[in-house]
Design a protein around this nucleic acid. Structure first.
Length: 591
DNA sequence: CCCGGAACTC
DNA sequence: GAGTTCCGGG
């Protein structure tokens, strides 16, 4: 069990989506160094959770250069790479302290969370972790950067049906909206506010996970090992396990008492080495993580189904990893099942375009740099990476079509609240057009993307051709289902699943957007306040539907969408939405 | 030192 | 996509 690997859908192995197979990333490398005592003179944890200081910049750079076979590496370059993490929100600089950076716990956590096999993490070793906040009172807060996660009691987690709600929250909490990678993020974070990230991935999370969960998972995952302190306390504790999502459930053995001694390695276990075994795990974790923050949300959607406690991972997908192809019979989540993953063929990753770039007028014809062809043979363990490029998954992408970079318009707005606009639009649109797909006609992508994120939705939905969901799994998967389900279950009265009819994504989309926006807004607020404040949301009753409503109401924006309140005859919209939702959920398969 | 844009590589 | 390299600016 502990070693249980998770089966990933093939898409996870595609080059595009699985960076895991790629080269080691800097932050992983940093973490690696951090956990090894040998390097404590060079780099070590320091200060707050996740904060580390590079004691010997040149050495770290050298090591990194070795690892990457870049002899020319130096701290200046390495630090540039580090700076890129600011926007990605993986790291941020600790101002005022030289060579000191800090990991963004949230991000990392989330990232790994789903797939990680926590069980294995148990044997922690490294002591190198940053100090854990011991006296955390009742509320344990994650690192500052993760404001939104407010932790309150974890009840919600427990209730089964809750999952969706939870998921949503979790996602929300853990991530903030990142607006764009513009320069300010780091600062915002420091302020305790996570810059907004609206990235798709994040969004996805929102729908899928609950903040607490994430923590938990984190806990388990990084658990003792991780540098990030997890609170042993109340909330998350053992409770999580059972109630959690299917994915979580996978980690049986896990709830260990918390042991403060971090080092990252959910994947690694006590020590990391490049031997196949470790690598494999590492990569797996890595992969996931990577895409967590970068990948398209869709992935996550699939995730629930995907996660199968299998020791082996399907390579190439041929064999039919459990997950991929058709809809595997998923495991039953507590209630609503999820659906099958349908791989969405599209991958747009919309990242916030760098906003203001100053364009330099002059186009100096500068020659490119030199191309030193240096091939240093690797050293010992680390060396392997240098020379070979893995040939793992190959995707047959017939000729490489020109890559188009799409810059979502919405991004800009998405920054902070954009939603209104979108929503309104959507709404209208929704009702107005959204022809019901009669037939099993696959509702085009919408399902997948739509749910996921606005940008994606928009993009995908409109731009992409119909999505052939092979399996017809409901792309939306859990998230959607969960959401939708909620209403029904509540007793909205939707009959059991089976209302055909037009499934239209739009409604969902709408919903999501709204929700999203709201969430974000909330997040922002919350964040500002710092995690602490638990939002009202949490308090909601376990009911699944509740959360949504609450949130919406809270904002006062548009209570319309989601679950129609019981008894309340909201606008027709709501009813429609409900209906649609219900149908969707039912028909998801068809989707 | 640190920041981030830009071009370029893999 | 994830850096790497170069660089002007603070």
């Amino acid at each position: 069990p502990r070693t249980a690997g998770f089966a990933f859908p093939e898409w996870a192995y595609k080059p595009e989506s699985s960076p895991g197979s790629r080269q080691i990333q800097l932050w992983h490398f940093i973490l690696e160094l951090l956990r090894k005592e040998e390097y404590h003179d060079v780099i070590a944890w320091q200060g707050d959770y996740g904060e580390f200081v590079i004691k010997d910049p040149d050495e770290v750079a050298r090591l990194w250069g070795v690892r990457k076979c870049k002899p020319q590496m130096n701290y200046d370059k390495l630090s540039r790479a580090l700076r890129y993490y600011y926007n990605k929100r993986i790291l941020h600089k600790t101002k005022g302290k030289r060579f000191t950076y800090k990991f963004n716990f949230n991000k990392l956590v989330l990232v790994n969370y789903p797939f990680i096999d926590m069980g294995s993490a148990g044997s922690g070793v490294p002591q190198s972790a940053p100090p854990v906040p011991s006296g955390v009172g009742t509320h344990f807060r994650f690192p500052p950067s993760t404001p939104s996660d407010v932790l309150s009691p974890s009840e919600e987690l427990r209730s089964p049906g809750v999952f969706s709600a939870v998921a949503r929250r979790m996602a929300r909490g853990s991530v903030s909206d990142c607006s764009d990678g513009t320069s300010t993020n780091s600062e915002l974070e420091e302020a305790g506010v996570a810059a907004g990230d609206d990235r798709p991935a994040d969004r996805v999370f929102r729908n899928l996970l609950h903040p607490r969960l994430s923590h938990d998972s984190l806990f388990r995952v990084y658990g003792p090992l991780s540098p990030f302190p997890v609170s042993p306390l109340p909330g998350p504790g053992g409770l999580l396990a059972p109630p959690l999502s299917p994915a979580l459930s996978m980690t049986p053995t896990s709830h260990l008492p918390y042991t403060p001694s971090p080092s990252l390695s959910p994947m690694l276990g006590s020590h990391f080495s490049f031997n196949p075994e470790d690598m494999k795990r590492y990569l797996q974790a890595h992969t996931q993580s990577v895409y967590n923050y970068h990948l398209s949300p869709r992935a996550f959607l699939h995730y629930p189904n995907i996660v199968i406690p299998q020791p082996q991972r399907p390579d190439k997908g041929l064999g039919g990893s459990a997950a991929a192809g058709p809809h595997p019979p998923t495991h039953p989540l507590h209630h609503h099942q999820s659906e099958e993953p349908h791989l969405s063929p599209f991958k747009f990753k919309l990242q916030p375009p760098p906003l203001g770039r100053k364009q330099r007028e002059g186009l100096p014809a500068s020659g490119a740099g030199h191309t030193p062809s240096i091939t240093t043979s690797g050293l010992g363990s680390s060396s392997s990476q240098c020379s070979n490029s893995a040939s793992s998954g190959l995707v047959n992408s017939s000729g490489g079509p020109p890559k188009i970079k799409v810059e979502p318009i919405s991004d800009v707005e998405s920054e902070e609240e954009v939603e209104v606009t979108d929503i309104s639009e959507e709404d209208d649109n929704c009702d107005v057009f959204a022809p019901p797909h009669s037939n099993g006609g696959p509702a085009p992508l919408p399902c997948n993307d739509g749910i996921v994120d606005d940008d994606d939705l928009e993009e995908d939905v409109f731009k992409t051709p119909a999505a052939p969901t092979s399996g017809a799994g409901p792309g939306l998967g859990l998230a959607l289902l969960g959401l939708k389900a909620e209403p029904r279950e509540l007793g909205l009265g939707q009959g059991p699943p089976s209302s055909p009819g037009g499934t239209r994504c739009i409604p969902l989309k709408l919903r999501f957007k709204r929700r999203w926006s709201e969430d974000q807004r909330m997040e922002a607020e919350a964040e500002e306040a710092e995690d602490k404040k638990s939002r009202a949301e949490k308090e909601e009753p376990v009911q699944e539907a509740e959360p949504k409503r609450v949130e919406e109401n809270r904002d006062g924006k548009s209570p319309v969408s989601l679950a129609a309140p019981l008894g309340t005859g909201q606008r027709r919209v709501s009813s429609e939405l409900q209906r649609a939702t219900a149908q969707l959920s039912l028909e998801n398969n068809g989707c």
